[in-house]
Design a protein around this nucleic acid. Structure first.
Lengths: 209, 209
DNA sequence: TACTGTGAACTCCTTCACAGCG
DNA sequence: CGCTGTGAAGGAGTTCACAGTA
């Protein structure tokens, strides 16, 4: 059960989104691997293999039962209780992310934001309260927050990361374009929007070759 | 020269960023593979292999000459002329992205934005003019824009994508959480921020196992 | 008949390990 | 020496192809 790779987790999350959308948009109760493949952008063999990894089984006659497959993925992926998230940095990007996340009703919510700018603290945006960064450690511990989104300039990113780890954070989604040094038990995902765009531009010019 | 995979392109972009930063922050003219590895988060063998793919050579005594390596990567990755980008959707996220991209002085710029909301058109944000989406096709052709950033609700994403392709767009950075159907010669990169965060949350709970 | 579940093959990516060199 | 460049090994991820099944 535990040998589920990063790639498979990524796809399971996408499958679930597709399944939920298709159960809302149609009243089909079942779906075949090739249909889910089409919707998600994966191959049908991959869909079957990934679902196999969950221990879930479909039927050759009807395919997968959407509702129970969604539950199986959820049981595997989701936290037991509602996830509380912190965000560091309330520049335009940080604010847009708070808005974007908290607008959707997900099993997760950005509950606390931190910034150094006095004008940005002690406000509330989409249910998220903002604090001065010097309060970060105590607030994160108080709320028992496990994951953080980092939206600050690269120059401060390592320093703030060290504090986040001291505060008990276990996962970081890092928008700063810099590699963070962290202990092995901390998960960091780098999301460098400029670098990703440069890649798109490169392959666009090469006609996706 | 042409067998450079997606993964290698991603890392070359990161290496270049690290090299430029380190030539600004110190006055070293050379760098060893293990130093660049540390800065970029790759392994030293990977750094050497990726650079080998460029056809660039370092010296065992001094490592790689930073300036000429940056040039080699640029010659490989960069467009010949300054890249013009379109963005579709001027919600909070779209606006933040325009601001974030155009604040940096890069070899690329978001020059045109499109939205359906009349209040959002005919404005200028960070050098980017906004238009009603019905003008999209003509403006994209006029500016000869090759790549677009899609920041609109999933429900409209496929329809707008089809129009983008008709307009001559070759690459799309898609922030909408949906798989787009496009011809094989069009490059699409999906950037589903919620899905990425769900992954961070999952691996944070598993202690990065 | 058309699907799932899956061993086996295959392709792609990463790391090892060492010859060659300044 | 300690580095680069690289053949070869190893590992991860994907696809093939087909037996089993309703």
């Amino acid at each position: 059960m535990s040998k589920i790779s990063k790639k498979i987790v990524e796809r399971l999350i996408i499958y679930r989104r597709c399944l939920i959308r298709s159960s809302v948009n149609s009243n089909n109760t079942h779906i075949f691997s090739h249909q889910l493949a089409k919707k998600s952008g994966a191959s049908s063999a991959q869909v079957r293999r990934d679902i196999m990894g969950l221990g879930y089984s479909g039927s050759p006659a009807y395919g997968y039962e959407i509702k129970s497959l969604v539950d199986s993925i959820g049981k595997f992926i989701d936290p037991v209780k509602r996830e509380k998230i912190a965000i560091i940095g309330l520049g335009n990007l940080g604010k847009a992310i708070v808005d974007y996340f908290n607008k959707q009703s997900l099993e997760m919510e950005i509950v606390a934001a931190f910034d150094t700018n006095p004008e940005k603290v002690n406000r509330v945006l989409m249910g998220c309260k903002s604090y001065h960064i010097k309060e970060m450690k105590s607030i994160i511990k108080e709320y028992d927050i496990q994951t953080a989104i980092l939206c600050i300039p690269s120059i401060n990113a390592q320093e703030v990361t060290d504090e986040l780890i001291e505060s008990g954070i276990k996962g970081i989604l890092n928008y700063a374009p810099i590699n963070l040094n962290v202990p092995l038990n901390i998960y960091v995902e780098n999301l460098d929007m400029i670098a990703i765009f440069e890649k798109v531009s490169y392959f666009a010019r090469k006609n996706n070759k």
